[in-house]
Design a protein around this nucleic acid. Sequence first.
DNA 1: ATGAATGTAAACACAATGTCCATATATTTC
DNA 2: GAAATATATGGACATTGTGTTTACATTCAT
Lengths: 202, 202
Amino acid sequence: MVTQQAPEPARRGRGRRPAAEVRREVLRAAGELLLTEGMAAFTIERVAALSGASRVTLYKWWPSKGALALDGYFDAVGPTLAFPDTGDIAADLTAQLRAFVHLMRDTRAGRVMPELIGHAQTDPELSALLRERYSAPRRALAVEALERAKERGRLREDVDPEVVVDQLWGACYHRLLIPDQPLTDEFAEALVRNLLAGIGRP
Amino acid sequence: MVTQQAPEPARRGRGRRPAAEVRREVLRAAGELLLTEGMAAFTIERVAALSGASRVTLYKWWPSKGALALDGYFDAVGPTLAFPDTGDIAADLTAQLRAFVHLMRDTRAGRVMPELIGHAQTDPELSALLRERYSAPRRALAVEALERAKERGRLREDVDPEVVVDQLWGACYHRLLIPDQPLTDEFAEALVRNLLAGIGRP
DNA sequence: ATGAATGTAAACACAATGTCCATATATTTC
DNA sequence: GAAATATATGGACATTGTGTTTACATTCAT
């Protein structure tokens, strides 16, 4: 039962294919298209053509273009999340922020993620999915790290970790989405320094 | 020379109309459409229909849909910018941030601005325009206020005002664009408190 | 083996983009 | 004031993407 794999990109006869195979191919094509040409070129039609699946199939499985894009993104990038915990909260935050800055500055993620966030502004489906599968989990990791630091007495008791997250990662997203100023290592370091020590003077 | 103003929305004969009148009508229609139905419903076609102008005219005057949207936004909202300067930097920052939070939470601007920023992620024209006419001027106002505070000795000398801006307004935009957490007055106040006094403990 | 589930191709209707044209009117120039 | 020029208008067109419908082929489960 040797299935002749067509060497050419996509040319197939009629009839059903295994669902798992179709899904795999679609996600691969979606991720590839997203990372190479960006959200502007990302259409259901092109994903269908690249994956060899029919548009109807895509419409059946994914509720919106954004949902498909997000699935494609995670399929391509994978769940590369981690949070160091050395006990030194300043160092841990700086390390995590620098890693984030590098990811956004040196890889395609730095173009794709802003485009996904941008698209989510007019796509409630994608907005919910993005919160649920991307921002909320990442936020939780940071909040946990800050809570631990608080328990160790490294942070003031009255500080809300959720606000701190916005003042660190939110600041990065700001420079990513509205690029008036560059996203650099020095920026990441200054964020932590400013916030921990305070910028005021008695 | 009495020009009979058609009482019905948009029904006109052929021929050239005064450029200023056309421009005014187009901007009014664009702003209105944007504020009532949002970016998703904002199309060249609908702006043309609402304004009574022809699509060709819009294509000639505006390089992209985003540019037209931004012009319409400013036409509708106007340059409502101001920065208090009472000498108390903490109070000034808090006041300005609270005003921003209110604008975004209680008016249509809170929906439109995220959509414009979102659209800018895949529209370089709009991105440049947004920086040039919106974010850069606003940023400058905040930076100037922080510089003045520095000169008065209220802020540490080694602090970069540009970073501070991201940690205050960037944090707000974060909650606006990725709404995991709500945008509240308490949030605005906590931002300033955290940053001025520092969140660390010796 | 058989039938239900599901992917495929092809066609359609629809909306919006972007670009023609010929014509009519405003503005400028003489 | 009249002619020349600039430009807005309506209408038509090709193109692209969305989303749905229909008939058919193949896989998967029983």
